[in-house]
Lab assay of single mutants.
Amino acid sequence: TIDEIIKALEQAVKDNKPIQVGNYTVTSADEAEKLAKKLKKEY
């Protein structure tokens, strides 16, 4: 679900690790936030 994706992003940001979500690779908190907002609009 979208919530699980967002939790995974938040965890990756805390661990400061890049995370791959679908076609996106998120490497920073800023990118994670942008991706989360984008995904919320889509779903």
Results as ranks from 00 to 15, higher is better:
residue 1 T to C: 15
residue 1 T to F: 13
residue 1 T to H: 09
residue 1 T to K: 08
residue 1 T to Q: 08
residue 1 T to R: 10
residue 1 T to Y: 12
residue 1 T to V: 06
residue 1 T to A: 09
residue 2 I to T: 03
residue 2 I to V: 08
residue 2 I to F: 12
residue 2 I to W: 12
residue 2 I to A: 04
residue 2 I to Y: 11
residue 2 I to P: 04
residue 2 I to R: 04
residue 2 I to G: 02
residue 2 I to C: 14
residue 2 I to H: 05
residue 2 I to M: 08
residue 3 D to E: 14
residue 3 D to Y: 15
residue 3 D to I: 12
residue 3 D to W: 15
residue 3 D to K: 11
residue 3 D to M: 14
residue 4 E to P: 03
residue 4 E to I: 07
residue 4 E to S: 08
residue 4 E to A: 10
residue 4 E to L: 10
residue 4 E to D: 12
residue 4 E to T: 07
residue 4 E to W: 14
residue 5 I to P: 02
residue 5 I to V: 08
residue 5 I to F: 04
residue 5 I to E: 02
residue 5 I to K: 01
residue 5 I to L: 10
residue 5 I to C: 07
residue 5 I to N: 01
residue 5 I to W: 10
residue 5 I to H: 02
residue 6 I to K: 01
residue 6 I to C: 07
residue 6 I to D: 00
residue 6 I to Q: 02
residue 6 I to T: 02
residue 6 I to A: 01
residue 6 I to F: 06
residue 6 I to L: 12
residue 6 I to Y: 02
residue 7 K to N: 05
residue 7 K to Q: 09
residue 7 K to G: 05
residue 7 K to H: 10
residue 7 K to C: 08
residue 7 K to V: 07
residue 7 K to R: 13
residue 7 K to S: 08
residue 7 K to A: 13
residue 8 A to Y: 07
residue 8 A to E: 05
residue 8 A to M: 14
residue 8 A to P: 00
residue 8 A to W: 12
residue 8 A to N: 04
residue 8 A to G: 04
residue 9 L to H: 00
residue 9 L to V: 03
residue 9 L to S: 00
residue 9 L to F: 02
residue 9 L to W: 02
residue 9 L to T: 00
residue 9 L to E: 02
residue 9 L to N: 01
residue 10 E to V: 07
residue 10 E to M: 15
residue 10 E to Y: 15
residue 10 E to W: 15
residue 10 E to F: 14
residue 10 E to P: 00
residue 10 E to D: 06
residue 10 E to R: 09
residue 10 E to S: 05
residue 10 E to T: 09
residue 11 Q to G: 06
residue 11 Q to A: 09
residue 11 Q to F: 06
residue 11 Q to Y: 06
residue 11 Q to K: 09
residue 11 Q to C: 04
residue 12 A to Q: 02
residue 12 A to N: 03
residue 12 A to S: 05
residue 12 A to G: 05
residue 12 A to M: 14
residue 12 A to W: 15
residue 12 A to L: 08
residue 12 A to R: 02
residue 12 A to E: 01
residue 13 V to C: 08
residue 13 V to K: 06
residue 13 V to I: 14
residue 13 V to F: 09
residue 13 V to R: 06
residue 13 V to L: 07
residue 13 V to D: 01
residue 13 V to N: 03
residue 13 V to E: 02
residue 13 V to W: 11
residue 13 V to A: 13
residue 13 V to G: 05
residue 14 K to I: 13
residue 14 K to R: 13
residue 14 K to F: 14
residue 14 K to H: 09
residue 14 K to M: 11
residue 14 K to N: 06
residue 14 K to P: 02
residue 14 K to Q: 08
residue 14 K to V: 10
residue 15 D to H: 07
residue 15 D to Y: 13
residue 15 D to A: 10
residue 15 D to G: 06
residue 15 D to L: 11
residue 15 D to C: 12
residue 15 D to F: 13
residue 15 D to Q: 08
residue 16 N to L: 06
residue 16 N to P: 03
residue 16 N to V: 03
residue 16 N to Y: 05
residue 16 N to Q: 07
residue 16 N to G: 15
residue 16 N to A: 07
residue 16 N to F: 15
residue 16 N to K: 08
residue 17 K to A: 06
residue 17 K to D: 01
residue 17 K to M: 14
residue 17 K to F: 15
residue 17 K to N: 06
residue 17 K to Y: 15
residue 17 K to S: 06
residue 17 K to I: 11
residue 17 K to E: 04
residue 17 K to G: 04
residue 17 K to Q: 08
residue 18 P to K: 05
residue 18 P to E: 04
residue 18 P to T: 06
residue 18 P to V: 07
residue 18 P to A: 09
residue 18 P to G: 12
residue 18 P to D: 03
residue 18 P to W: 10
residue 18 P to I: 07
residue 19 I to T: 10
residue 19 I to M: 09
residue 19 I to H: 02
residue 19 I to Q: 03
residue 19 I to A: 05
residue 19 I to Y: 06
residue 19 I to R: 04
residue 19 I to K: 03
residue 19 I to W: 06
residue 19 I to D: 01
residue 19 I to N: 01
residue 19 I to F: 11
residue 19 I to S: 02
residue 20 Q to M: 10
residue 20 Q to D: 05
residue 20 Q to C: 14
residue 20 Q to E: 08
residue 20 Q to I: 11
residue 20 Q to P: 02
residue 20 Q to R: 14
residue 20 Q to K: 13
residue 20 Q to W: 06
residue 20 Q to G: 03
residue 20 Q to L: 07
residue 20 Q to N: 10
residue 21 V to D: 01
residue 21 V to K: 00
residue 21 V to I: 15
residue 21 V to L: 12
residue 21 V to F: 11
residue 21 V to H: 02
residue 21 V to S: 01
residue 21 V to C: 13
residue 21 V to W: 10
residue 21 V to Y: 08
residue 21 V to N: 02
residue 21 V to P: 01
residue 22 G to A: 05
residue 22 G to L: 09
residue 22 G to V: 02
residue 22 G to T: 03
residue 22 G to S: 04
residue 23 N to R: 09
residue 23 N to D: 12
residue 23 N to M: 11
residue 23 N to W: 08
residue 23 N to C: 15
residue 23 N to S: 13
residue 23 N to H: 08
residue 23 N to P: 15
residue 23 N to I: 12
residue 23 N to G: 15
residue 24 Y to K: 03
residue 24 Y to V: 07
residue 24 Y to N: 03
residue 24 Y to F: 12
residue 24 Y to L: 08
residue 24 Y to I: 10
residue 24 Y to R: 05
residue 24 Y to C: 13
residue 25 T to A: 08
residue 25 T to W: 15
residue 25 T to M: 12
residue 25 T to N: 10
residue 25 T to I: 14
residue 25 T to C: 15
residue 25 T to K: 07
residue 25 T to F: 15
residue 25 T to L: 14
residue 25 T to E: 07
residue 25 T to G: 05
residue 25 T to V: 13
residue 26 V to M: 03
residue 26 V to G: 03
residue 26 V to L: 06
residue 26 V to F: 06
residue 26 V to E: 02
residue 26 V to N: 01
residue 26 V to P: 02
residue 26 V to A: 08
residue 26 V to H: 01
residue 26 V to K: 01
residue 26 V to T: 04
residue 27 T to P: 05
residue 27 T to R: 07
residue 27 T to D: 11
residue 27 T to W: 15
residue 27 T to F: 14
residue 27 T to H: 12
residue 27 T to Q: 11
residue 27 T to L: 14
residue 27 T to E: 11
residue 28 S to D: 10
residue 28 S to R: 01
residue 28 S to F: 03
residue 28 S to I: 03
residue 28 S to W: 05
residue 28 S to M: 03
residue 29 A to Q: 06
residue 29 A to F: 05
residue 29 A to E: 04
residue 29 A to D: 04
residue 29 A to W: 07
residue 29 A to I: 08
residue 29 A to L: 06
residue 29 A to T: 06
residue 29 A to M: 07
residue 29 A to P: 05
residue 29 A to R: 06
residue 30 D to Y: 13
residue 30 D to P: 04
residue 30 D to C: 12
residue 30 D to T: 08
residue 30 D to L: 10
residue 30 D to W: 14
residue 30 D to K: 10
residue 30 D to V: 12
residue 30 D to H: 09
residue 31 E to F: 04
residue 31 E to V: 04
residue 31 E to P: 00
residue 31 E to K: 01
residue 31 E to T: 02
residue 31 E to N: 00
residue 31 E to M: 08
residue 31 E to Q: 08
residue 32 A to P: 00
residue 32 A to I: 06
residue 32 A to D: 00
residue 32 A to Y: 03
residue 32 A to Q: 02
residue 32 A to S: 02
residue 32 A to R: 00
residue 32 A to W: 04
residue 32 A to N: 00
residue 32 A to V: 04
residue 33 E to V: 09
residue 33 E to N: 09
residue 33 E to K: 12
residue 33 E to D: 10
residue 33 E to H: 09
residue 33 E to Y: 12
residue 33 E to M: 14
residue 33 E to P: 00
residue 34 K to L: 13
residue 34 K to Q: 13
residue 34 K to A: 15
residue 34 K to D: 09
residue 34 K to P: 01
residue 34 K to R: 12
residue 34 K to H: 09
residue 34 K to M: 13
residue 34 K to W: 15
residue 34 K to V: 11
residue 34 K to T: 11
residue 34 K to E: 13
residue 35 L to V: 03
residue 35 L to D: 00
residue 35 L to G: 00
residue 35 L to H: 00
residue 35 L to M: 05
residue 35 L to T: 00
residue 35 L to F: 04
residue 35 L to Q: 00
residue 35 L to A: 01
residue 35 L to W: 07
residue 35 L to E: 01
residue 36 A to N: 01
residue 36 A to E: 01
residue 36 A to D: 00
residue 36 A to W: 14
residue 36 A to F: 12
residue 36 A to P: 00
residue 36 A to V: 15
residue 36 A to L: 15
residue 36 A to S: 06
residue 36 A to H: 04
residue 36 A to C: 13
residue 37 K to T: 12
residue 37 K to V: 09
residue 37 K to F: 08
residue 37 K to P: 00
residue 37 K to L: 14
residue 37 K to G: 05
residue 37 K to E: 12
residue 37 K to S: 11
residue 37 K to W: 06
residue 37 K to A: 14
residue 38 K to V: 06
residue 38 K to N: 03
residue 38 K to E: 11
residue 38 K to I: 09
residue 38 K to P: 01
residue 38 K to H: 09
residue 38 K to C: 15
residue 38 K to W: 15
residue 38 K to R: 13
residue 39 L to K: 01
residue 39 L to I: 05
residue 39 L to S: 00
residue 39 L to V: 01
residue 39 L to W: 03
residue 39 L to C: 07
residue 39 L to R: 02
residue 40 K to H: 09
residue 40 K to Q: 11
residue 40 K to A: 10
residue 40 K to F: 10
residue 40 K to I: 13
residue 40 K to R: 15
residue 40 K to E: 04
residue 40 K to D: 01
residue 40 K to T: 07
residue 40 K to S: 09
residue 40 K to N: 03
residue 41 K to D: 11
residue 41 K to Y: 10
residue 41 K to M: 13
residue 41 K to W: 13
residue 41 K to G: 10
residue 41 K to R: 13
residue 41 K to F: 12
residue 41 K to Q: 13
residue 41 K to N: 12
residue 42 E to W: 15
residue 42 E to I: 15
residue 42 E to F: 14
residue 42 E to T: 10
residue 42 E to A: 11
residue 42 E to P: 05
residue 42 E to N: 09
residue 42 E to K: 14
residue 42 E to H: 10
residue 42 E to Y: 13
residue 43 Y to H: 09
residue 43 Y to V: 07
residue 43 Y to E: 05
residue 43 Y to A: 09
residue 43 Y to L: 12
residue 43 Y to T: 06
residue 43 Y to S: 08
residue 43 Y to I: 10
residue 43 Y to G: 06
residue 43 Y to R: 12
